[in-house]
Design a binder for these strands. Structure first.
Length: 433
RNA sequence: GGUGAGGUUCCCGAGUGGCCAAAGGGAUCAGACUGUAAAUCUGACGCGCGAGCUUCGGUGGUUCGAAUCCACCCCUCACCA
């Protein structure tokens, strides 16, 4: 039986399918009607980062195709820690911290799917609900009995922890797989859930769940994994000099988020369009063709930044990000009006108040590193020596280091109170008198 | 509990009494070239404008001088019980 399924075809066309169980069967299963699927998100911080974006958007793709997504927040599994492909054992977080994170992630995750669209409305579930009152003996007898340690040991995901010299794995983390498998079995029973998706690192855990569901519920269920996002230059995806790119606007501003995407390399950007946007594969190919024909700067990065920022931060967040970007990168900042300056800090351009009184005593290195333009004064020094510090359009050097009072004298300020400081090509900060 | 191997700056990883703020690589930052791209080249890369200050699991000790030697302790891993 081979049934063409438009959703699966699209996912495959985007390169979004890493592995799946029984392709033909799954195609048939999805084509026959509305199905319920789930994906888990463990709370390892108070926000998800862009690594979770691929599965979140995948759930949305399924929902758009008429299926019902369940977003599982790992209130229980987050207490244990997933060992899959992790090089080392992680330290446990306290229950109230995890609980706090669960609440935040619940609301975050909810923005990506529709909760009010009839029978395929999304639901958020928490695996703590069905595990916290599970007693050990029941768990060991009813669930644990279905797992063969010999098999678990040979899972690729824990291999390096078992085999690698100098590493080990605690029973706690080793048991993670059983917990996640149990989730699938429970959701199959309670919600008739028949598909689990996740990152490709979850393959081992997902197949574990499929087997458990077969044994305990006598149900044939499916699994599908999404690829790990990689960059052409081999560096880790999702990091900038400021660290992880988070989905929470408090942690990564819409402006910084937008900038992350606009800085994508040409070698990655068309793949990212496929992974992270809802533009059709044909549209993306069209963009790529146009970029290849046009001389110079491609349009793909701009489209990517626009689409993803809108998905995550909404139209307002996108507009704020675009306003700042436009003001700072379009060349001449002297054209900005007083209102523009006010808007910039409202939009999330890093800004701070300047204390004029002590200015004479503070070296620029200290002032600018404390403002967040660089992690240490050393880097500011380096930038100064290369004339890479620009204040309101004028470059300053190391010889100006002890002359903050003159650099930031009120007569130099725009509209008597604004200083736009640029360090290097991409880092900006607004000082307000 | 026993035996063995380890714990070095963001990561990997050299260093085994002064020449060590500590090789090399990666990551990161800045400059040149560009397109807020890649590649390449240059510089920075514990902190400090600087004099200088603080590091090599922890605590004590030996020494003019310790990441390096000694003692005790903590932690990780492997094998055995």
């Amino acid at each position: 039986m081979t049934v063409e399924n438009a959703l699966l075809k699209d996912l495959q066309g985007r390169g979004l399918v890493a592995q799946m169980t029984g392709e033909d069967e799954l195609e048939g299963h999805l084509s026959e009607g509305s199905r319920t699927l789930y994906c888990g998100f463990d709370p390892t911080a108070d926000s998800l980062h862009i690594g979770s974006l691929v599965p979140l958007l995948a759930l949305k793709r399924f929902q758009q195709a008429g299926h019902k997504p369940l977003l599982l927040v790992g209130g229980a599994t987050g207490l244990i820690g997933d060992p899959s492909f992790k090089a080392e054992e992680r330290k446990l977080n306290t229950p109230d911290i995890v609980n706090n994170w669960v609440e935040k992630i619940k609301t975050q995750v909810g923005r990506f799917v529709d909760f009010d669209c009839g029978e395929h409305s999304a639901e958020v579930v928490n695996n703590l609900d069905w595990t916290q009152n599970l007693d050990v003996l029941t768990f060991l007898r009813d669930v644990g009995k279905h797992f063969a340690v010999n098999q678990m040991i040979h899972k690729e995901s824990v291999k390096q922890r078992i085999e690698r010299e100098g590493e080990g794995i605690s029973f706690t983390e080793f048991t993670y797989m059983i917990l996640q498998s149990y989730d699938y079995q429970v959701l199959n029973k309670s919600h008739n859930c028949s598909l689990q998706i996740g990152g490709s690192d979850q393959w081992g855990n997902i197949t574990g769940g499929i087997e458990l569901t077969r044994r305990m519920n006598r149900q044939h269920v499916f699994g599908l994994t999404l690829p790990l996002i990689t960059k052409a230059d081999g560096t880790k995806f999702g990091k900038t000099e400021a660290g992880t790119v988070w989905l929470d606007p408090e942690r990564t501003s819409p402006y910084a988020f937008y900038q992350f995407w606009i800085n994508s390399a040409d070698a990655d950007v068309y793949n990212f369009l496929r992974y992270f946007t809802f533009l059709s594969v044909e549209e993306i190919e069209g963009v790529q063709r146009q970029d290849a024909e046009a001389q110079g700067r491609p349009q793909a990065q701009g489209i990517l930044a626009k689409e993803v920022t809108r998905l995550v931060h909404g139209e307002e967040g996108l507009q704020a990000a675009e306003r700042i970007t436009q003001a700072l990168f379009s060349g001449d900042t002297s054209a900005l009006s007083e209102g523009d300056y006010q808007q910039l800090s409202l939009d999330g351009l890093p800004s701070s108040n300047l204390d004029v009184v002590n200015l004479a005593d503070i070296p620029l290195t200290t002032l600018l590193s404390e403002a967040g333009l660089a992690p240490s004064g050393k880097q500011v020094k380096d930038a100064l020596q290369r004339k890479a510090v620009i204040v309101n359009g004028d470059a300053y050097g190391m010889e100006d280091n002890m002359r903050a009072g003159e650099v930031f004298s009120s007569s130099q300020a725009r509209f008597d109170r604004y200083f736009l400081v640029k360090l290097g090509k991409k880092k900006h900060h607004l000082f307000v008198l």
